[in-house]
């Protein structure tokens, strides 16, 4: 009985609150038309350049022949619908699980070692009092971001190649050579290191910007309370940038199937395929010489689906646990 009594008014309340919600929304819109006008340019570009092309996703389910119609869009509709055939081809390959495993291993290593690193850099940089030094460090560590992978390979090849700087030093000291490029374990280390080299500075900037948002009066209050620097970092700085950390982590984990296509493509060689061949490089190689738009669409759709599930999942978890979320 009691239960009923309780639920009924709740329902009514819900209904009325929904109506109330609608009314409130309407009132809000009437009071804040500018808010919606502001969104227009962004939504316009989003619609034209991001959402309209999503029509092309169906290429993954069709045997896409680009010249079949009057133009490539028309050709999509005219290409034969073959359902999941390309996905089957992708998943049934004997190589697929190997390359999936490699992708996950490389991605996880990168997250494990490289995700916290820019945070550390940003926090430490924040402790530097000399403004000049601060700016010099910032500028220097962000330069590698502009190097393309091809070039980074060239630079590092001269350093870690069998006859590069490191091995020249090793052999002159009487040691043996280290095959960074052809030995699997060393190769993974090289991949993680070079990615860190390229991206750390860039990511540091993002956290630095977040640190500036922290109200400096909090630090003043902490000093008055006698909190040391470490305590300030732990209790003010890190919580202050936690929403950015969460945002970055959700996006990074979501992209776990993206282990760095361009990087691996220039760095790897047949000797390390067993550990270094990732999904994208594998599809790139088997599709080589054939304009296989459908196969690459199927792969990218698979990657997107996984990313979507992970991001939605991570966002929900984060909302529950930390009250921080992207949406």
């Amino acid at each position: 009985m009691q239960k009923k009594l309780i639920t009924r008014p709740q329902k009514v309340k819900y209904k009325s609150s929904f109506r109330e919600e609608c009314r409130k929304t309407w009132v809000y819109i009437r009071h804040h038309p500018a808010m919606y006008l502001m969104l227009l340019p962004g939504l316009f570009f989003l619609f034209i350049y991001k959402l309209l092309p999503l029509y092309g996703i169906q290429i993954a389910f069709r045997n896409y022949q680009i010249f079949l119609g009057d133009n490539p869009i028309d050709a999509i509709a005219k290409s034969e619908w073959i359902g999941l055939a390309y996905f089957k081809r992708l998943f049934s390959s004997s190589q697929f699980f190997k390359v999936l495993r490699n992708t996950l291993v490389i991605s996880s290593l990168k997250i494990l070692f490289l995700f916290p690193f820019p945070i550390v850099c940003a926090v430490l940089l924040n402790e530097i009092h000399s403004k000049l030094y601060h700016r010099i460090v910032q500028t220097v560590i962000y330069i590698p971001y502009f190097f393309s992978w091809v070039l980074i390979y060239g630079v590092f090849y001269a350093i870690v190649g069998s006859y590069g700087v490191i091995n020249t030093i090793l052999t002159s000291l009487g040691g043996g050579r280290i095959d960074f490029l052809t030995d699997a374990a060393h190769f993974l280390g090289l991949i993680v290191f070079t990615e860190g080299w390229k991206e750390t500075g860039y990511n540091t900037i993002i956290y630095l910007a977040a640190i500036t948002a922290i109200d400096s009066t909090l630090y003043d209050a902490a000093k008055v309370d006698g909190a040391g620097k470490w305590k300030q970092i732990w209790h003010i700085t890190l919580p202050g940038i936690s929403s950015t950390i969460v945002l970055m982590l959700i996006l990074r984990v979501g992209n776990i199937l993206n282990a760095g296509f361009e990087q691996i493509l220039v760095f790897y060689n047949p000797a390390v395929y067993n550990t270094a061949d990732i999904i994208d490089t594998y599809v790139y190689r088997i599709g080589l010489g054939q304009m296989d738009f459908s196969l690459s669409s199927a792969m990218s759709l698979f990657n997107s689906l996984v990313a979507f599930l992970l991001i939605v999942g991570a966002n929900t978890v984060s909302k529950k646990l930390t009250k921080r979320s992207i949406w």
Binding site: N269, P270, R285, Q290
Partner: peptide
């Protein structure tokens, strides 16, 4: 249509055998 892909498969195998992987 397909020979480029075949050649890639072959070259990878060949190189792997020569270097012992």
């Amino acid at each position: 249509e397909k020979n480029t892909a075949l050649l890639n498969v072959f070259q990878d195998y060949f190189v792997q055998v020569v270097v012992g992987t």
